[in-house]
């Protein structure tokens, strides 16, 4: 199995887990943290592996990862304090 195939299977598994957690009917912070962590992991896999930004010189990786962290962090804030 190639590394890309393993990464694809990880992404599919995380998506299935996210969907399954939602189907249990859980809500609030009990679903927020695991779902956002799964999203962060999926995003990082796409950025570092599929976009192949890991190890690339220059600011691109940190700019894209920073975008992901900022957006997910602010989403977490709005859901926790609403």
């Amino acid at each position: 199995m190639t590394a890309a195939t393993f990464q694809w299977l990880t992404l599919v598994t995380l998506t299935a887990l996210t969907f399954s957690v939602a189907e249990t009917g859980l809500s609030g912070s009990s679903i927020l943290i695991p779902v956002l962590l799964a999203t962060l992991l999926k995003g990082r896999l796409v950025i570092d592996r599929f976009m192949a930004l890991q190890g690339v010189s220059g600011p691109w990786r940190w700019v894209v990862l920073g975008w992901l962290l900022l957006v997910l962090g602010l989403i977490a804030y709005t859901f926790l304090y609403s």
Binding site: L32, V35, L36, I47
Partner: peptide
């Protein structure tokens, strides 16, 4: 990548 954020935001959380 955009859809990976959009899916949980709109459909799950």
């Amino acid at each position: 990548l955009v859809w990976i954020v959009l899916f949980p935001l709109i459909y799950i959380l």
